[in-house]
């Protein structure tokens, strides 16, 4: 596990667990067994006693609190989020996947909101993503314009923000991934949920917090169909190693 060590120390990753999180174990498995990191769960009722314990934190997918009010809304108001905000403010790397993305939006760590998919249905399928900004910890091993294959599985992934905010997001290079076709063309047909500008993943201004609708943990081994998701985790690992 050479990659995952800093000197002789392992990289520490934390995974938040809310009631209703259900990709927590998938992310745990990927980070621990596929990438060899030192991984631990962070219970939603806890506070992060010491942010320095973690090199990065993943907010995994699922249906936190059943997504009963709005996707991610209740989790965004639970105890752990204050600590996560502090962690983000101090530069900690946070990746929110699917429901984790929704939670980041609801918590205000990222801008915008998620609406119900334009089909009004849950959509589970394989999509293609175009990389727009390789200058983040999550994409530093990728090239702008390259295309990744990854699964989505969500009911509310229709990203919305006001026009002005979209412009600001783009100006700040916070638009990281767009849904595209297999050849990298960003088309209406390639948009699985009605997202504005085919937005699939965005980051904050400091690039240390990213939300992503598709599931990189489900695309981390050949056996499950794609290893393109591994490129995102490997970027984070490499970034941390190079600090």
């Amino acid at each position: 596990m050479v990659m995952a060590m800093i000197g002789d120390k392992k990289i520490n990753a934390g995974i938040t667990v809310f009631p209703g999180s259900n990709c927590d174990m998938d992310v745990y498995y990927a980070l621990k067994d596929v990438f060899g990191l030192n991984v631990s769960f962070i219970w939603h009722k806890d506070r992060l006693l010491d942010c320095k314990k973690y090199h990065f934190i993943v907010i995994p997918g699922g249906f936190s609190y059943g997504d009963y009010l709005r996707a991610g809304a209740l989790a965004a108001r639970s105890g752990i989020m204050e600590s996560l905000k502090e962690y983000a403010d101090s530069g900690g790397i946070i990746l929110g996947i699917c429901n984790g993305f929704q939670i980041l939006l609801e918590a205000g760590l990222l801008g915008g909101a998620m609406l119900t998919n334009s089909s009004l249905r849950f959509e589970c399928k394989t999509v293609y993503l175009k990389v727009l900004n390789k200058g983040t910890p999550f994409t530093c091993m990728l090239e702008n314009g390259s295309v990744l294959k990854m699964p989505i599985a969500h009911h509310d992934g229709n990203y919305y923000a006001k026009n002005d905010d979209i412009v600001k997001l783009k100006d700040a290079r916070g638009l990281i991934f767009q849904y595209c076709d297999i050849n990298g063309n960003v088309t209406a047909e390639a948009n699985p949920n009605g997202s504005i500008d085919n937005i699939a993943g965005i980051s904050n201004g400091k690039f240390n917090v990213m939300g992503l609708m598709p599931h990189p943990e489900r695309a981390s081994e050949k056996l499950t169909g794609s290893i393109d998701g591994a490129k995102i985790f490997n970027s984070v690992i490499k970034y941390i190693k190079n600090i």
Binding site: I6, K9, K10, I11, N12, V17, D24, M25, Y28, Y29, N38, S40, F41, I42, W43, D46, L49, D50, C51, K52, K53, Y54, H55, Y87, S90, G91, G92, I93, G135, T136, P137, C140, M141, K206, F207, N208, K238, Y239, I240, N242, I243
Partner: peptide, 30 residues
Amino acid sequence: YFSAEIPDMLHIPDIGMDMLSIIPGIIKNA
């Protein structure tokens, strides 16, 4: 599979660096 057992924070080794030093800002190209 893993149960969502919450580890004792004390047993997680410290990463031994100042968190502020990993604010990305400008990404160093690997």
